[in-house]
Deep mutational scan, measured.
Amino acid sequence: ETQAGIKEEIRRQEFLLNSLHRDLQGGIKDLSKEERLWEVQRILTALKRKLR
C-alpha cells in the first residue's frame, strides 16, 4: 500500500461518510446506514493511522 493509494482510499471513504451523514440528516432512521457510518469511520481512522 502506497501513500498515494492510502490517500485515495481516504478520499473515497470520506466521500461515503459525507453521503451517509447527508442521508441520515434527512431525518430517516436507518439502522443499517448508521452501522455503515460507524464502520466507515473506523476504516478512516485506521487509514489515517497508516499515514503517520
Rank of each mutant, 00 (worst) to 15 (best):
D23E: 13
I6M: 03
T45S: 11
K7P: 02
S19M: 14
S19G: 05
A46K: 06
T45Q: 14
W38D: 10
R11A: 10
I28M: 08
G5A: 14
R49N: 13
Q41R: 11
Q25A: 13
L47G: 00
K33M: 11
Q25E: 13
E9H: 13
T2H: 07
L51W: 03
K7R: 14
K29F: 14
Q41D: 04
R52C: 12
E8R: 10
K48R: 13
N18C: 15
V40T: 05
K50L: 13
R42H: 05
R36I: 07
I43G: 03
L20M: 03
R52D: 10
K50M: 11
E35M: 12
Q3H: 09
L24Q: 03
D30H: 04
S32Y: 10
I28V: 15
N18D: 14
E35R: 13
R12T: 04
D23V: 06
T2R: 09
G5I: 12
E14H: 08
D30Q: 02
R22Y: 06
T45E: 15
L44H: 00
T45P: 00
L44P: 00
N18W: 10
I10E: 01
T45N: 12
E39I: 04
L16H: 02
F15W: 09
L20C: 13
A46I: 10
G5M: 14
V40C: 04
K7E: 10
K48C: 04
E1S: 10
R36F: 07
I28Q: 08
D30F: 02
E14P: 00
L17H: 03
G5H: 12
K50R: 09
E34L: 15
I43Q: 06
R22A: 12
E1C: 15
Q13P: 02
D23S: 08
G27L: 07
S19K: 11
L16K: 02
R36P: 01
E8Q: 08
I43N: 07
S19N: 07
I6N: 01
R11I: 06
K29A: 10
L17C: 13
K50H: 03
E35K: 14
A46G: 06
L47R: 00
D30V: 02
L24I: 07
T2F: 11
W38P: 01
A4L: 10
A4D: 09
Q25R: 08
E35Q: 11
F15D: 15
I6V: 03
R12Q: 06
Q41A: 08
Q41P: 00
Q25P: 03
I28K: 09
L37M: 11
L31I: 12
G26V: 07
D30T: 03
L47C: 01
E14Q: 08
A46Y: 07
I10K: 01
R11N: 03
R12V: 05
R22F: 08
R11G: 03
G26C: 13
K29T: 08
K33Y: 10
L51D: 01
A4R: 11
L24N: 03
S32H: 10
Q25S: 06
F15K: 15
L44W: 00
R36Y: 10
Q3S: 07
T2E: 11
I43C: 06
T45Y: 07
L31S: 12
L17F: 09
Q13M: 15
I10T: 01
Q3G: 04
L17A: 05
E34V: 14
R22S: 08
T45L: 11
A4M: 06
F15S: 15
K50Y: 05
G5C: 15
R11V: 06
E39H: 04
W38G: 07
L16R: 02
V40L: 05
L44F: 00
R36G: 03
G27R: 04
A46N: 08
R22K: 12
K7L: 14
L44N: 00
E35T: 09
R11P: 01
H21A: 12
E39K: 04
Q13N: 10
R36C: 06
E8I: 07
I6C: 12
L17D: 02
E39C: 06
Q3F: 07
I6T: 01
I6G: 00
L31M: 07
A4C: 14
K29M: 09
L24A: 04
R49G: 08
Q41N: 06
Q25N: 06
L51N: 01
E14D: 02
E14A: 03
H21S: 11
A46R: 05
G26F: 09
N18R: 12
K48H: 06
E8C: 12
K33Q: 07
L24D: 02
L37Q: 02
R11K: 09
I28E: 11
N18P: 00
R12F: 07
L44D: 00
E35A: 11
L37H: 07
D30R: 01
T2Q: 08
E1G: 08
I43W: 03
I28P: 11
I10V: 02
L51G: 00
E8D: 09
S32C: 12
K48A: 03
N18Y: 11
H21P: 01
K48G: 03
L24K: 03
K33E: 02
F15V: 14
R36A: 13
L44Y: 00
K50C: 11
T2K: 09
I28Y: 07
R11D: 03
R49T: 10
V40N: 01
F15Q: 15
Q41K: 11
I6W: 06
Q25K: 13
E34I: 14
R42L: 10
R12W: 06
E34G: 04
Q13T: 11
E8T: 03
E8Y: 03
S32W: 10
S19E: 14
K29C: 14
N18G: 05
L17P: 01
F15P: 01
T45W: 09
R12G: 01
Q13V: 15
S19W: 11
I6L: 12
I43A: 06
L47M: 12
L37I: 14
L31D: 10
K33C: 11
E9W: 06
L31V: 13
K50D: 03
E39D: 05
E34Q: 14
E9T: 03
A46C: 14
E34M: 15
R52E: 12
G26L: 12
I6P: 00
L51C: 03
S32P: 05
E39P: 00
F15M: 15
R22M: 11
L51R: 01
G27I: 06
E35V: 08
E14L: 11
Q3A: 12
V40Q: 02
G26E: 07
E9Q: 09
K33N: 05
R42C: 13
I10M: 02
W38V: 13
A46H: 07
K29N: 10
L31H: 12
E39T: 03
G5K: 14
R11M: 08
N18F: 08
Q25L: 09
E9P: 02
I43D: 03
R42M: 08
F15N: 15
I10L: 01
E34C: 15
D30L: 02
I43E: 07
I28H: 08
E8L: 07
R42V: 06
L51P: 00
E34S: 08
E1T: 10
L47Q: 00
R22H: 09
I43L: 12
L31Q: 12
G5Y: 13
L17M: 05
V40S: 01
R36K: 11
Q13C: 15
L16N: 01
D30W: 03
I6D: 01
K7F: 08
A4P: 04
R49K: 12
G27A: 08
Q41G: 03
G26R: 09
T45C: 13
I10Q: 01
G27E: 06
F15A: 15
Q41V: 13
L17S: 02
T2W: 13
G26W: 06
